[in-house]
């Protein structure tokens, strides 16, 4: 299926994701807060970018906007060169399915489904692969996050860290051009943190994915290609 935002024939710029002047207010009435105060940001193919900053500075809020899960009050978001911030729900949904992989900070899995089914879920919607190929790919992804032996466990039967790793595998299911991960190693021990981080950086290098991750872990931030620090709704 030819797509205007195909992964490989990259535009000269190599920019997969760009946002300019993003503003976001949250809450209503008295509780209305100016959370993002003009954020501009870009991520290139093959690069891993870390966003760091104190709790409550707006990292997750920014990531939801970049993942097209939320809409900015002002500013613009481009995905693979196409302006998505003003497009309708259907177009944003299609872009999420085909080009963006998202790892949430909390609640990762659909708990009534097995790890394997969770990973196959985005593939089934996209429908690019045959069922057998989907299954094989899901197995391979779970293997790569160290869960090859637990593919048939239900979400409820996995620990927080295991759930998080399944969520990483699931975000990679459709080979998205852009991977957005909100603290993907937050619940993981050193060994598994390294496993997940190595997987993400390897994919960025080998497949030219743009990886944006939020982290509180200075070691990980340091190993990224770039680190952007955020404070009180703006990059500093």
């Amino acid at each position: 299926m030819p797509s205007p935002f195909s992964l490989l024939p990259s535009p000269a710029s190599g920019i997969a994701l760009r946002c300019t002047g993003l503003h976001r207010y949250l809450g209503v009435g008295e509780g209305r807060v100016h959370v993002l105060k003009g954020v501009s940001f870009e991520a290139r193919r093959g690069e891993v970018v870390a966003i760091v900053g104190p709790s409550g500075c707006g990292k997750s809020t920014l990531l939801y906007l970049l993942g097209l899960l939320d809409q900015p009050d002002d500013g613009q978001i481009e995905i693979n060169g196409a302006v998505m911030s003003n497009s309708d729900d259907a177009a944003r949904t299609a872009a999420r399915g085909a080009h963006i992989g998202f790892v949430f900070q909390f609640h990762f899995l659909m708990l009534e489904f097995s790890a394997l089914e969770n990973v196959m879920m985005p593939m089934r919607k996209l429908g690019r692969l045959a069922p057998d190929a989907m299954k094989a790919r899901a197995h391979a992804l779970l293997e790569s996050v160290g869960l090859g032996a637990k593919t048939h466990r239900l979400g409820t039967q996995l620990s927080g860290g295991e759930q998080q790793r399944v969520a990483v595998a699931r975000a990679l299911a459709n080979e998205p051009a852009i991977l957005l991960a909100d603290e993907p190693t937050g619940n993981l021990d050193a060994k598994n943190s390294a496993l997940v981080f190595d997987l993400l950086t390897r994919l960025a290098k080998e497949q030219g994915q743009a990886v944006v991750l939020v982290t509180h872990n200075p070691e990980i931030a340091q190993r990224c290609d770039f680190t952007r620090a955020m404070r009180d709704g703006v990059f500093v």
Binding site: L69, D89, R96, H107, F108, M110, P122, L126, R170, N174
Partner: peptide
């Protein structure tokens, strides 16, 4: 529902 929508499931 949020997870499904984030993976490209439509309304």
């Amino acid at each position: 529902i949020a997870i499904l929508r984030s993976m490209g499931y439509e309304r």
